[in-house]
Amino acid sequence: MVPLLEAAGQQVFAPSLTGFGDKAHLLGPEVGLDTHVDDVVGLITDENLSDVVLVGHSYAGLVISSAANRIPERIAHLVYLDAMVPEDGESAVDVQPVTRHLIELAEKSESGWRVPPMPEQPAPFGLFGVTDPADVAWLRGMLSDQPVRCLQQPVHLGNPAVDAIPRTHIHNVGAMPEGVTRRAVPSIQPNGTAAQVWELPTGHDCMITMPSELSELLLKLS
C-alpha cells in the first residue's frame, strides 16, 4: 500500500503498533488499546502532522476513534477499513461480540493474556481472507499474539470536536467467517452529512488481496 500511495504523491505513515511488526519484542500483558492510541497520537504529534487521513483496519477502528478524540484538530478524515466502529465507552466485545470467546480463551490459557491469531480456514475464508499460498505464508510470518487488554479497554469519544470529522466506511464483502458480524452504518454521520460506504469484493485483509483497488479508494479522500 505504501509505495502505491506514495507514487500518487501522498505522504504515508504505516506505524507498527506496540507488540506487532517491528515492535513485536514489546508484546506484554500491559499492552492494551490505550497503548496503541498512544502510538498513533505520538506519531502524529512527533511528526507535527495535520490534515491526516487516519485509516484503521479491523481492531484498529477502535484505535483511530480514540486517537481522533485526543487530537481532532489534526484529523481531516477517518476511514474505517472493514473495522470495528465503536460508540463512546465501548470495548471490542461491545462492537464485535465474538471477541468475548477470545478473551475467555486468553484468560484460561497458560499466559492468561495472549490472544493467538485466528487459524487459517479452507477457501474462501483463508487466513483473514487471504488464500494465495505465497501471500498466506508471508502473512503468517507477520502475525503476533494480541494482548487481551486490547479487547477489554474502552474507547473514549467524549470530545465533541471528534463528531465533526468526516468518516468513510470501506466494507470487504467477500466471504465472512461464522460469528463475525458488522454493524449497520447509520445513514447520517455524526457531523450531519450522509454516510459514505464503499465496498470491495474481497476478504478481510484487502490491503493484501486488492491493494490497487484500495489505494484508488483512499486517494479519493486526499
Rank of each mutant, 00 (worst) to 15 (best):
P133E: 09
D88M: 07
E213W: 05
A123W: 01
V12C: 05
D205G: 04
G21I: 06
N172H: 02
S144Y: 00
K23F: 05
T202A: 13
L218C: 10
Q152T: 02
L33S: 10
P186R: 07
G21S: 03
L218R: 06
E90P: 07
H169G: 01
N172Q: 09
V162S: 14
S212N: 11
V52K: 02
V31K: 03
T209S: 15
H204Q: 09
L62P: 05
K220C: 08
G21K: 07
G61R: 01
P119Y: 04
L43V: 11
A161Q: 15
V95G: 13
F128E: 06
A175N: 03
A7P: 00
Y59Q: 08
A68M: 03
L78Y: 07
E87H: 10
R114E: 15
L127E: 11
N159K: 05
D88S: 10
W138H: 07
D46R: 07
A24H: 05
L81Q: 06
A123F: 01
L33T: 03
A106R: 00
A106C: 03
V93W: 07
V79Q: 09
P29H: 03
L17M: 12
V180L: 13
S16N: 13
P124T: 04
E120Y: 02
A24E: 13
P177T: 02
A14K: 02
G89S: 14
N191K: 07
A92I: 11
T18I: 01
S65H: 01
L81T: 04
T45Q: 15
M118R: 09
D94P: 11
K23V: 02
L219I: 11
R149F: 00
D163K: 15
E90N: 11
L33M: 10
M84Y: 14
V148R: 07
E216Q: 15
G174Q: 04
D135P: 00
L105D: 15
L78A: 10
S144V: 03
S222G: 13
R114W: 00
V53C: 11
M84H: 10
L105S: 12
F128L: 09
A68W: 03
G28H: 04
S65F: 00
L221P: 08
L157D: 13
G89N: 09
D39P: 02
Q153D: 12
A106I: 00
R183C: 00
P117F: 07
L105I: 05
E213P: 00
A14E: 04
H77L: 07
V55S: 08
E216K: 12
A76K: 15
M118C: 01
V2A: 14
A7L: 04
D132R: 05
G158T: 12
G174V: 08
S50K: 03
A8P: 04
T168E: 12
L78W: 04
V173N: 13
R74M: 04
D163M: 05
G112A: 06
H204G: 09
T181L: 03
I75F: 13
G203T: 06
I75V: 15
E73S: 14
L221Q: 12
V37G: 06
V148T: 11
L214C: 14
L43M: 10
L214Q: 08
S66L: 01
K23R: 15
V180P: 00
S222Q: 10
L43W: 05
S187C: 00
Q96H: 05
S66C: 08
D145Q: 02
S144H: 02
R149Y: 03
Q189D: 12
V95T: 14
R114I: 03
A76P: 06
M142T: 13
R74W: 10
I71G: 11
